[in-house]
Design a protein around this nucleic acid. Structure first.
Lengths: 204, 204
DNA sequence: AAAAAAACCGACCAAGTGGTCGGTCAGCTA
DNA sequence: TAGCTGACCGACCACTTGGTCGGTTTTTTT
């Protein structure tokens, strides 16, 4: 375990810098040398730790992206009693984090799903799986909210989950081009409006 | 005008195929040769008509993407009397088109904004401008709806516009990975729910 | 039909790309 | 001290990329 320390440290440095650059410039538009240059490491070091560029990115997904999505978007909702309130707070917190840290990696997921779609099936699958877990978690929480009396029984949980995910992916996409504060404020305002409309008896 | 016919035809063939491949595989991940091969044309033909790969893409934006966004998302809303109804119908129609034509280019905008962000400022600007026109148009239409009595006066037009755009961008992003029919059905259902909640007196 | 202009061809180039591989070297063990 | 091993180096390779350019073919003009 101790002797693995250096190994782990180097691998993690590469992964962190790799995610940063892949996120900033795109996977296909970032060369391994770009990453290595910033770390003052060599090609040899890279291929000593990782089999290929693809293998490298998969390790980034598993070690960084998955964990971030879980901690930012899945766990904050999981345990809460009132799903609609929990979702509101979760989104609020996630956007606030995104607003202040330029590279919080809170929702790189969207960008990468986009970039790899139709280009690399294996990576796409890994990314899609994360998204699916999020979706299932939302649906499950909403359903549980029904039995607990927080959510109207007629609510279409899957529809609401899909809509919430859509809007969140969309706003994160818009936020990359600045004016984040205003955007996220507007977004949360309307999300509240939407969530509240779900809580009352169906309109029409 | 007549003498330009062949020129126009060839340029358009290149642009159409270019958009198809750029959309499918990404701009940076598609070579000019990829496009030329499918058209049985040569490098010389390409550089006879376009100055560079970048110039080529800008011409695609101006000739294909702008027009599509206008005809699919801007014009259908512009003239209508009741904005909320117009938006609903517009989204419905846009998603239905997207659902059936795999490459309708209805909202490539999202993908490309994503890909070029932070990588090519000039192209980003062109794309952002299209998005801005859409946004302004939504806001204006909503405001006009207030004076016409279709929209409550307290409505935050800019917030609603941002939210609608977010959700639309998000759903189009999710739809690339299949299961479109189900997704777009859910999305429209929830969009209606949201729009209806706007029409009535503010909740809380 | 001849000349001029427009459209197109494809070999070529410099600059990268992902990936390989023989080698170096610090630190541990015996 | 000698040997071994994990971590790293960097020259090198085959290949792709955007872009150039001298030349050929097709179309239009005269």
């Amino acid at each position: 375990m101790d002797k693995n320390l250096k190994r782990m440290a180097t691998m993690h440095r590469m992964q962190a810098k790799g995610l940063e650059l892949f996120y900033k410039k795109g996977f296909y538009n970032t060369s391994i040398d770009d990453i290595l240059k910033e770390l003052s490491l060599s090609k040899g070091a890279f291929y000593y730790h990782f089999q290929s560029k693809e293998d490298f990115f998969i390790s980034i997904i598993q070690n960084l992206i998955v964990r971030k999505v879980y901690s930012m978007l899945i766990e904050p909702i999981e345990g809460e009693s009132d799903p609609l309130v929990a979702i509101e707070h979760c989104f609020e917190n996630a956007l606030s984090t995104a607003e202040h840290n330029e590279f919080d990696y809170g929702f790189v997921l969207g960008n990468f799903i986009n970039e790899f779609n139709g280009r690399n099936d294996e990576i796409s699958k890994y990314l899609r799986d994360i998204y699916k877990v999020w979706e299932v978690n939302l649906v499950t929480t909403l359903q549980k909210g029904k039995t607990d009396g927080f959510v109207p029984r007629h609510l279409d949980s899957e529809g609401v989950a899909a809509y919430l995910i859509s809007s969140y992916m969309g706003i994160r996409m818009l936020m990359v081009e600045g004016n984040n504060k205003n955007l996220s404020y507007h977004f949360m305002q309307q999300t509240r409006q939407y969530l509240k409309s779900l809580a009352v008896t169906r309109l029409v």
